[in-house]
Structures are given as C-alpha cells and as structure tokens.
C-alpha cells in the first residue's frame, strides 16, 4: 500500500509545497519588522497591534465574513439543487444559465448587476446586493462539482431506495445527500474562498459606508500594501480553519450519534 503510493506521495508533497510556500511568506512577513514585504528584518507583533486598533479594517473583515458565509450558503443550496436537476432531468435552459456566470468576466457581471440593482430594482446598495451578486457567480461553481460527482454514479442505488418504498425526499435525504456530501462541502468551501476574495463584483455592488475587506486591501495598493494585510490574511486563514474543523466535528458527532441510535 505505502510502496504503491510512493510516487504519489512525492508528487503530492511537491504540490503541497507549491501551495504553501507563498502562504508561508504571507504568514512570516506578518511578523516582520519592516514595512516592505521584502526580506526578514526581525520579529514583531506590531502589525497585529496595528490591525487590532484599525476599526475600519476589522469591520471590513467582519462584513466580508458575513457576506462570504451567506453567499456560500445560498450558492451551495441553489447550486446543489441545480446540479441535481441538471443531472437527473433533461433540462435545456438551466445548464446554460448555471454555467454562463462562470464564463462571464467579473467586471461585466459587476457592472450589469449594478445597473440592474439601481435602474431596475431601485435597490439601495448594501450587504444584501453584494450577497446576491456573490451567490450568482458561485452557483455555477457548486453545480459543476455536484454534477461531476453524480456523473457515472451507480443509478441503481437510487432506484433500489425507491423500490424499497422510500419517498423522493427520503431517497434524497438518506441516499443521495450522503453520497454527494463531499462535493457539497467542496462547493461550499470554494464559494467561501471566491466570495471573501472578490474585488471587482464587490466594488460595483457594495453600498456606501460599509467597509469590505478586498476593497480595503485593493485600494491600499496605491500606497503599497503593508504587513497589516498579511496579519489580517493570517487571521482569516486561522478562522477558516477553525470553522471547518468545528463543522467537521459537529458532523462526525452527529454521525456517531445517528450510528448509535440505529
């Protein structure tokens, strides 16, 4: 088993290194005693102190989290439904609609949604408009993953459940959902990271007076990004890690309780 996977482990280690070397730089420089992200000068917590006294940046991080959580929740539910529907039924319109936002350049989606919100809906821009915009472009990502999971899956499982008298809902809840759960989780994670990072669509759909993280960071480029941004990035990663671990624990807890009940 181990020997068979030796080359796999090697390749995977390289890929993980590729993923983590830039990240290490981000984290390390958040403790660096220099305004420039250029070389190691000395250890300091200065940038974290700056961050924690920067009410605007913190509010921005909070707002971004709320947006990312809401948008990824919405996109995961809608995207999962879309993925299931596309796989199960011969639909013509939905697939095109689901995948088109993925294909649309962000700036176009941003401007068109802005025009739509202001001139058609007459909506006051705010958190809600950003959440809707993010949900729109995340749905496709979720649906694509769900569909990839469903494709080639053994249909006889679902048929067997139905033959045994399970209702459609029961089949979904106890057969389909557990089977596609890894894809659902992957889609949710993907939506979360897409949303928390998006500058273009966020810029166009955000309201006034609400700082949002990517905007704060992107507009700092004019004056060169300081390690404060590294610090907020580091904390965001820790936070994401925590949320995922808590979710995983809750899930395994629920699973073991369910197993005990049976």
């Amino acid at each position: 088993m181990i020997r068979r996977h030796a080359w796999l482990w090697g390749a995977a280690a390289l890929v993980y290194a590729f993923l983590y070397i830039p990240l290490a730089i981000v984290v390390i420089y958040s403790f660096n005693d220099s305004r420039l992200n250029a070389e190691w000068v000395g250890f300091t917590l200065h940038w974290y102190r700056v961050l924690f006294s920067d009410a605007e940046m913190l509010a921005a991080a909070g707002n971004s989290l709320i947006i990312a959580l809401s948008a990824s929740l919405g996109a995961t539910v809608l995207g999962t439904m879309a993925g299931l529907a596309i796989h199960r039924y011969r639909l013509r319109v939905l697939p095109a609609l689901v995948f088109a936002p993925v294909a649309m350049p962000e700036i176009l989606l941003g401007v068109s949604l802005l025009l739509f919100f202001l001139q058609v809906l007459n909506l006051t821009l705010g958190m809600l408009s950003v959440i809707i915009a993010h949900t729109t472009f995340c749905i496709g990502f979720v649906a694509i993953i769900i569909r990839a999971r469903l494709q080639g899956m053994d249909e006889s499982l679902f048929e067997a459940a139905r033959d045994l008298g399970a209702s459609r809902w029961q089949t979904f809840r106890f057969v389909t959902l557990p089977l596609i759960m890894p894809a659902v989780a992957a889609g949710a994670l993907m939506s979360f990271t897409l949303s928390i990072d998006d500058f273009v669509i966020t810029f166009f759909t955000k309201g006034i007076g609400e700082p949002i993280l990517p905007i704060q960071i992107y507009t700092m480029i004019k004056v060169a990004v300081t390690p404060e941004v590294n610090a907020v990035s580091t904390l965001l990663m820790l936070l994401t890690l925590a949320m995922i671990i808590v979710a995983a624990r809750l899930e395994s807890h629920a699973a073991s309780r369910e197993a005990a009940r049976r």
């Binding site: 990072d197 992107y218 590294n230």
Partner: peptide, 8 residues
C-alpha cells in the same frame, strides 16, 4: 491558502 487574500 485560499482563505488569505488573493492579492497578497
């Protein structure tokens, strides 16, 4: 790694 900021 993707929970950190894109530009960073």
């Amino acid at each position: 790694p993707f929970a950190s900021n894109f530009l960073i």
